[in-house]
Amino acid sequence: MAHRFRSLVTLLSLLAGVAFAQETLTVASTTSTEQSGLFGWILPKFEQATGIKAHVVAVGTGQALEIGRRGDADVLLVHDRVAEDKFVAEGYGSYRLDVMYNDFVVIGPKADPAKVRAAGNTVEALKSIAANQQTFISRGDKSGTNAAELRLWKQAGIDPKTLAGYKEAGSGMGPTLNMAASLNAYTLSDRATWGAFKNRGELDIVLAGDPILFNPYGVIPVNPQRHPHVKKAAAERFAQWLTSPAGQEAIAAFRADNQPVFFPNAKK
């Protein structure tokens, strides 16, 4: 039976045309890094430097951490500092390294009915959106962006679930922006996804540059003591390369919508 099953797996692999020749690495990461085009920019450089082909599964940070916890990825590149530290502390990750940051921006209608531009900082902006009873679209998908947004509401002292205009999209950044564009609503986005987003409608950045919107990304190799099958060496090379001068320069050179959106910050 076991033998027969193995033949079936081999057959499936043949059908699927799996290439065994090149070393591959599975990276679980976020929609922001994939959809902004960052991976399309840096992965060819990584492959050239190391000969390793990286396969990126782009999901929300919450799901990326879950994929790592189950051992289905070799390395993670995510942005939710609190959850990342917990992941490493629980022994699922070997260690965490700073890679880069981007920042969140508040997106809203150009006309800005909630006067967010005049609010000065993000916490005041959220208060103003609530006070003016404007529509706000939340990711609602336990992603890093969603976690950051919920922390901001907490700081503003508002439970967003009590607001009539608060809607949870339950999906990635892109679909959330699509929804905000069609409802002409406010939302919180990472700058990179917004930079690559095309269906903007009447939306624009209404608030940016607040230090509280700082959004750090960390790289975490999955712990081989937990999951012995993970590609330890390749995962470590990925983490080392991203934080090396070559990787950091590649990140700095990336542009979305002619803007730099990711800023390298690995410790020297």
Binding site: V9, L12, S13, L15, A16, G17, V18, T26, H55, V57, G71, D72, A73, H229
Partner: peptide
């Protein structure tokens, strides 16, 4: 899990 088929075309075929 030991076959390592997740995130591959073979998994999609299954």
């Amino acid at each position: 899990g030991s076959y390592g088929l997740l995130f591959s075309p073979a998994a999609m075929i299954v």
